[in-house]
Design a protein around this nucleic acid. Structure first.
Length: 337
DNA sequence: CATACCTTCCGCCACT
DNA sequence: GGAGTGGCGGAAGGTA
């Protein structure tokens, strides 16, 4: 019976905690719906929204959602389980019923994932232990503290480890859903959906872009302000700690310490994030060759840039450009595979 | 691909 | 004694 049902449709269950980010629910649901539409209904995704208690769930921003079912209804043959994120990770763990339900579904479904702060709902189930994970940048430290055995990869937009998906940022739920579509039906369909969603949502980039901006604002009244300004204006320059420290009139040791205190990021981390932001913008907005972009962004070469991109964003510069470019390509057609 | 650097991060301690 | 600063060295991770 279950296999028949499984063959007929692919069931995606989205668990919604209280105070959820509505975009973390609506985003993925839209992606699956668009995927079905773009395939001219040759594929199926049956998305069910599941909550703990019957009745509407009020999201963090006040939007109310009426779930399709609760965890107390008879189990469905779930193919993919997603756990949406609360606006802020709550102090209290989810109820034993929720933990048990997630564990049971994860044991029998093909793959499962947490959207953004959904990692905090999934954490107490033990499903993150020993796995590579990511979450919203502001809560990475908290997640690491609560679940020390999970291997946190901050700054990544999307991390997959076996059947487990996690992502950082609320809109990253869209990236997560796109990657699931890609896995099931290929990159062509996923790209078609992405292009449609991107233009519609005006989405741009991932986490680190916001991190350097926020870090810079936090540090606005710091001794470092002139140095940060100089760094912003000279992305291609050498930014060794010794040179930056000299520019700030401090010793290297003290510079590193003050930098971490005032921006919340280590100098190396900040420089790398800033270089990625610079390169990313150029990839989106220009058709310059990768070598030129790497040099203008401060990378030692195109190969170094590629490695950093893969490590921090999970995708190389070339593919990043294909997916997010806003500039018109030089040639009217390029290889689509 | 393995090896020998080099840089960064950070705890520790001394100095003002 | 507390706060800020600077030097040292080891561990980790990246580069040539």
């Amino acid at each position: 019976l279950h296999t028949a049902e499984r063959n007929g449709r692919v069931i995606v269950a989205v668990f919604v905690p209280n105070d959820a980010h509505s975009l973390g629910i609506g985003g993925p649901k839209d992606v699956f719906a668009e995927a079905v539409r773009h395939s001219a209904n040759t594929i199926t995704y049956d998305v069910r929204v599941v909550s703990e208690h019957p009745g509407p769930v009020t999201c963090g921003a006040g939007l109310r959602i009426l779930p399709d079912r609760t965890i107390h209804d008879p189990d469905l043959p779930i193919d993919t389980l997603l756990v949406a994120g609360p606006r802020y990770p709550s102090e209290a763990p989810p109820s034993p019923e929720v933990i048990g339900w997630i564990r049971r579904q994860a044991a029998s479904c093909r793959r499962y994932g947490a959207i953004c702060t959904g990692a905090f709902v999934m954490g107490p189930t033990g499903l993150l232990d020993g796995k590579r994970v990511t979450t919203h940048w502001a809560f990475g430290a908290e997640l690491a503290k609560r679940h020390p055995s999970a291997i946190l990869e901050p700054d990544r937009i999307l991390v997959r480890d076996g059947p487990l998906f996690t992502c950082g940022g609320v809109t990253a739920g869209i990236d997560l859903a796109l990657s699931l579509v890609e896995e099931d039906h290929g990159s062509e369909l996923a790209l078609a959906v992405a292009r449609f969603m991107v233009t519609f949502l005006q989405r741009s980039g991932g986490q680190s872009q916001f991190r350097t901006q926020i870090a810079t604002q936090i540090a606005a009244r710091s001794l470092l302000d002139p140095v940060l300004k100089w760094m912003r204006d000279h992305p291609g320059e050498d930014m060794a700690i010794s040179l930056l420290a000299e520019r700030a009139g401090m010793s290297a040791r003290n510079f590193s310490r003050v930098f971490l205190r005032d921006t919340g990021m280590t100098p190396g981390n900040f420089v790398e994030a800033m270089r990625i932001d610079t390169a990313r913008r150029m990839l989106e907005e220009t058709n310059l060759p990768l070598k030129v972009i790497a040099s203008a962004s401060g990378f030692a070469g195109a190969e170094i840039m590629r490695r950093v991109f893969r490590r921090r964003l999970g995708v190389g510069p070339r593919n990043y450009r294909l997916q997010f470019r806003t500039a018109t390509p030089d040639r009217p057609s390029y290889r689509s595979s």
